[in-house]
């Protein structure tokens, strides 16, 4: 397909969490690895918002960091606009980096407190040499205007702003290199709901105006439902289901997705009795064999304890569960 902006194939990242060498010798322990992301495949089309949801430890942020090139994958490849990202080549990465940007969770940590807002926003412009001289100041003013602040705010320091305003500054900085693709890692989890609504609306407006593509990472299913076109659900580093947003919420295919949807507190006061969720996410260092979700799954079968399910096609996307009978996505090897 030609309109795919980013595709990820077999993306895997392992972290070495072994004890130091001598401890291993004396305590007779093996090296230990934590697999934060395992064999993740997905595509993001131009102009859409793709969301990754999952609980803490499910690998959301690890995947985001690999996509923006802050972490090197252990296996697998990332294609951006048809080209494979080459982590070894500095020049190739730099050329790509202008085209994607990132918005982080905590606007108190992501802005340098000693820099004026104008310099923070101008930095990507200067780094990539997009403009010179007075044009930079005008551009900064325009960007501040765009995110709902005023051009005179460029002279201020980040501490003079509230959380919501700082997140606006972070968005202005992300837009300053004129990217096509923005990775938003929990952009509103540090904000209050009324401010969250402002930021989410702003992100949507900007998307419409500039045709941006978003990868939205969040643990908040309502935010994800509101913002995205397609959703990927992660569990212990594996993608268990990918589906169109509307269908995912109406008809979740994977038992984990169903459980997650059930657990969201209900504002509609429908009085539905939620199915109590059993257990918690297991330790990712020694994940359960077979399907990682099987110890908590209400439909667990024998096969789930032995083999990892392959993703299969569903009405609205793909899901990896032994219960499903759709066509396997990958040809059997």
């Amino acid at each position: 397909m030609s309109d795919v902006l980013l595709s990820v194939e077999g993306l895997t990242r392992r972290f070495d969490v072994s004890k130091p060498f001598l401890n291993r010798v004396f305590e007779r322990e093996e090296r230990q690895f934590l697999t934060a992301a395992a064999d993740v495949d997905f595509e993001i089309r131009k102009g859409e918002t793709f969301a990754l949801v999952g609980e803490s430890g499910s690998g959301k942020s690890t995947i985001a960091k690999m996509i923006v090139g802050l972490l090197e994958p252990s296996e697998g490849e990332i294609r951006f606009d048809g080209k494979v990202m080459d982590f070894a080549s500095g020049a190739a990465m730099r050329a790509l980096r202008r085209r994607f940007q990132m918005i982080f969770q905590d606007p108190f940590a992501s802005l340098n407190p000693r820099w004026r807002v104008g310099d923070i926003i101008a930095e990507p412009i200067r780094t990539f040499g997009l403009m010179r001289g007075a044009a930079i100041g005008r551009e900064v003013g325009r960007l501040l205007d765009l995110v709902g602040l005023s051009a005179s705010d460029a002279e201020k320091f980040p501490h003079e702003f509230s959380g919501g305003q700082r997140q606006r500054i972070a968005i202005a900085r992300a837009l300053s290199s004129r990217p096509e693709f923005i990775v938003c890692d929990e952009p509103t989890s540090a904000l209050d709901v009324s401010v969250q609504a402002q930021i989410l609306n702003l992100m949507r407006d900007l998307q419409d105006e500039f045709g941006l593509t978003y990868l939205l990472i969040s643990h908040d299913l309502s935010v994800v439902r509101h913002m995205s076109n397609r959703i990927g659900v992660l569990y212990l580093g594996r993608l268990v289901e990918v589906a169109e947003a509307k269908k995912l919420f109406l008809d979740p295919q994977h038992p984990y997705t169903r459980m997650l949807l059930d657990a969201v507190p209900d504002l509609a006061l429908s009085g539905r009795r939620r199915v109590p969720v059993e257990g918690e996410i297991p330790n990712p260092i020694n994940p359960p064999p077979g399907c990682a979700f099987h110890p908590r799954c209400p439909h667990v079968m024998d096969v789930c304890r032995r083999t990892i399910p392959d993703p299969r096609e569903t009405d609205s996307g793909t899901a990896a569960c032994h219960l499903l009978t759709g066509q396997p996505v990958k040809a059997a090897v």
């Binding site: 009324s194 609504a197 609306n201 949507r204």
Partner: peptide
């Protein structure tokens, strides 16, 4: 009213959230 409108829910279909301008 504004607070309730600004919370995205799992069932709503509105394209935009109601937002309260400004901050506390």
């Amino acid at each position: 009213v504004g607070l309730m409108g600004s919370i995205p829910t799992l069932t709503q279909t509105a394209d935009r959230l109601t937002q309260i301008p400004g901050a506390m």
